[in-house]
C-alpha cells in the first residue's frame, strides 16, 4: 500500500532532469532546483539544500525509504516523496543519456 505523497514532483520545465530519489547509495550530484509544495520546499531550503549544492546519498532505509544524504557536512534523511522534488544537474558521466 503506498501512501499518497502530498509533495508531488512538480519540476516544471525540468522533465529531463534526474531527481534525488533516482540516486543510489554512494552516488552524489549537484542540485539544480527545488520543487514541490511550499512547506516541503521551504524546509529543504532552510536545511541548506540549495541550487549548486552537492549532495551525497549515503543509504536508503530497509523498506526503500527514507533516503539518507550528506549535505554541507551533516547527515539528513528525507522521504522518497520529498526527494522527488529535488532536481539534480546532469552528471558529466550520464550526460547525453539523460533519463526521462
Amino acid at each position: 500500500m503506498k501512501m499518497e505523497h502530498h509533495c508531488k514532483t512538480q519540476c516544471r520545465g525540468h522533465f529531463r532532469h534526474r531527481v534525488l530519489s533516482d540516486l543510489k547509495p554512494g552516488q552524489s550530484a549537484v542540485i539544480c532546483d527545488l520543487c514541490g509544495c511550499g512547506g516541503c520546499k521551504r524546509r529543504l531550503l532552510e536545511l541548506g539544500l540549495l541550487p549548486g549544492q552537492e549532495i551525497l546519498v549515503e543509504r536508503v532505509g530497509p523498506f526503500g525509504e527514507p533516503i539518507g544524504i550528506k549535505v554541507r557536512g551533516y547527515h539528513l534523511s528525507l522521504r522518497r516523496g520529498q526527494a522527488q522534488g529535488v532536481c539534480l544537474e546532469d552528471d558529466r558521466h550520464t550526460e547525453g543519456s539523460a533519463q526521462a
Binding site: 502530498h6 509533495c7 512547506g39 527514507p66 551533516y74 547527515h75 522521504r79 516523496g81
Partner: peptide
C-alpha cells in the same frame, strides 16, 4: 490528515 512538514530528519 496532512502535516508532512516534519519528515525531514537530521541524523546528528
Amino acid at each position: 490528515t496532512g502535516g508532512l512538514s516534519h519528515f525531514v530528519m537530521e541524523l546528528p
